[in-house]
Design a binder for these strands. Structure first.
Lengths: 210, 210
DNA sequence: TAGATTGTTAATCGATTAACAATC
DNA sequence: TAGATTGTTAATCGATTAACAATC
């Protein structure tokens, strides 16, 4: 199948559609037009139709979109029908918080392991998962066919661990360390969550009002 | 002062410049050209110069940019010389993790209070701050001139609490609840961190490889 | 001075919006 | 059938990149 290249702008909007459609579904809304959805989401109807038509025609003239059908279709596009075996590397506050976040499980991201170097943390159990020594990570990844790693480490440690993860055959890294990881293998996908960047954007916008 | 409207694309890149310049500063790099910075950051030199010139001429022909000067200038643009009195609403795992995150303090975001409705959490101390009942939030905000609220609540509770925060005179909300807040007051700035959206983007990009 | 590199204008590229024929 | 709304092409808008004169 020849897949037309989808721009990242479009891809980044997909989870938002998915979220709104999920809410509609919870409220038993059966169908919705791009116009009505555009009102709720605060975007143009034109953009919604353009975005969706990158992936196929999900609607029907004169009717609109079936909410459940579109919700499932976008879920599939986002790869949410897959199960992702996940580990969390760095079991500090943030790592533990993410381990406890049940919303990830619901979408198929199952936390199988937690790793840290801190002897005080090793052996502690978070949500039924024992924190293990980082030394054991390589074997664990191979034995449990881990796909995904969540990196919640200090930035000094992140690059080395990231490259280790690559060599152990991980497919993707969800990175919370405040650094842009440069990986040796371009096939490994990195998604960065720069929390401080987001906070600074907020700071920029309110700075005149303080 | 008539301020030319700065696009959000530019604003969102500022923290990244700030981050890279901070790293250079740590490594005692005194000056840098847009070309060299573009290599490190993986963006075009042209974009760097365009972005910076939205705020003034920080460089010098034939020399480049003084790292420390530019770092401080961007910090100022981002409003990081301000102190922001901050509360965290929702003292679950994520709320507590953020309360413990010292990087925020370093940038002037000082956590003054923690609030929750869960009686099991109320009274517990996190990093020297006692978790208080949500009922006390209104008075606390006024008495401690709180500027900013971090929202780490379930999505069902977020809209009401957000509107309460607005009525108590908060200036900005850093929202971690998976919902787009619609506020009654347009002067209150909301910055959303949709963690699940970010994870789904990652999922999209690795889905073919699983 | 000569070389380097900025600030800034102009050109290009891509993303968003508008419009409308097709069709349910 | 008539009205509604899609899918899609065309027009517009804005952001990025290229180019280069100015100047350190």
């Amino acid at each position: 199948m020849i897949q037309k290249k989808i721009s990242t702008a479009v891809i980044k909007r997909l989870p938002k559609y998915y979220r709104y459609l999920g809410d509609l579904l919870e409220n038993d809304v059966v169908r919705i037009s791009s116009k009505e959805l555009s009102n709720r989401m605060g975007v143009t109807a034109s953009q919604i139709r353009q975005d969706l038509n990158n992936f196929g025609g999900f609607g029907q003239q004169g009717y609109g979109y079936n909410v459940e059908y579109l919700y499932n279709a976008i879920g599939k596009i986002l790869g949410l029908e897959n199960k992702y075996n996940t580990i969390i590397v760095g079991a500090g506050n943030l790592g533990q918080a993410l381990a406890n976040y049940t919303n990830f499980d619901k979408r198929g991201f199952e936390v199988k392991g937690l790793f840290d170097v801190n002897p005080r943390l090793i052996g502690i159990t978070v949500r039924g998962i024992e924190i293990k020594d980082l030394d054991e990570m390589g074997n664990f990844i191979k034995e449990n066919s881990i796909d995904l790693a969540i990196l919640t480490l200090p930035k000094q440690k992140a690059p080395k661990v990231a490259n280790d993860l690559v060599s152990y055959g991980i497919k993707g890294i969800w990175n919370f360390a405040p650094i842009d990881l440069k990986l040796s293998n371009k096939n490994v996908i990195v998604e960065n969550v720069h929390l401080l960047d987001s906070l600074m954007t907020l700071s920029y916008n309110i700075k005149e009002r303080i």
